[in-house]
């Protein structure tokens, strides 16, 4: 397993946002996480990426290392990249600089040589800039390299957030609603880019998504959360038929046949 999460719980005061979750993701897998609003999906990501610390008793093992108590930047440098629901791109920095920050952990020169501006700093800068320009070209933003990231359009911002995460050369990429609030055309572009990146860099993906179509088409395994608990897990086809999932999403009143029709149309 590339990522193995056991017994993960997080409480905020009296609210249990994530409760006893186990999760195992194989290398190369595309794992989907769905669930209604407030079901703990983003909290789960924040726990894996180290933004929140879980309650005692949990363990998060990534690539053979127990990263439960690691700092966010250590987890990132170890190969776990993530995007944010609200993107959090560095709007005041250029598009290329956003990627260079993503590449931060892989830039090789020390503070002292940067202060005196030694020659190897310039050589290294030139090298990483070229490398990041390649990545920018791959996600289709090469023309905007020097533009302030804040001036990009909505779809471009999502691509940039993706690029910044990829600049870390991660093994595992956590995508928090990569297609939210995008037009159908842009959803296609972003998804194609995600899958192209996965293929090119041999990524493992965990995707939180509200748009069921995205999950059903791209994921091999889907976990369903409700009220912080994992209520179901399996292939997209099996999840579609699961009673608890249907209830969680649509309530109990609907006839099963109607619900199935709805989910199928998704």
């Amino acid at each position: 397993m590339l990522l193995e999460v056991k017994n993960l719980t997080k409480r905020f005061g009296g609210l249990t946002a994530v409760s006893n979750i186990d999760l195992a993701v194989k290398p190369g897998a595309v794992h989907g996480i769905i669930g209604p609003n407030g079901s703990g999906k983003s909290t789960l990501f924040n726990l894996i990426s180290g933004v929140y610390k879980p309650e005692p008793g949990a363990s998060i093992v990534f690539d053979g290392d127990d990263i439960t108590d690691w700092e966010p930047h250590e987890i990132a440098r170890h190969g776990v990249a993530r995007t944010f629901q609200l993107l959090r791109i560095f709007s005041g920095m250029s598009v290329l600089e956003n990627l260079l920050i993503g590449h931060h952990g892989l830039i090789r020169y020390n503070t002292a040589s940067a202060v005196i501006g030694s020659r190897n700093v310039w050589a290294e800068e030139r090298r990483v800039r070229e490398e990041m320009m390649e990545l920018l070209a791959f996600i289709g933003l090469a023309d905007y390299a020097d533009m302030p990231a804040g001036e990009l359009s909505g779809g471009q911002r999502r691509l940039l957030a993706l690029g910044r995460a990829m600049a870390m050369r991660p093994k595992l990429l956590l995508l928090d609603e990569p297609a939210a609030s995008l037009s159908p055309v842009n959803v296609e572009i972003v998804l194609d880019t995600v899958l192209a990146l996965k293929k090119r860099f041999g990524l493992t993906l965990i995707i939180i998504e509200h748009i069921l179509k995205v999950v059903m088409e791209t994921c091999e395994t889907v976990s369903v959360l409700e009220h912080g608990e994992k209520i179901a897990e399996g292939s997209p086809a099996a999840i579609k038929e699961d009673h608890r999932v249907i209830e969680a999403y649509l309530g109990k009143e609907m006839e099963d046949s109607e619900v199935r029709a709805l989910l199928r149309s998704a």
Partner: peptide, 17 residues
């Protein structure tokens, strides 16, 4: 660049390593 990233968004900076 790392300084600017801190200024812009600490959470995103940490998530970028």
């Amino acid at each position: 660049r790392a300084f600017k990233a801190l200024r812009e968004d600490q959470l995103a900076a940490a998530a970028s390593g």
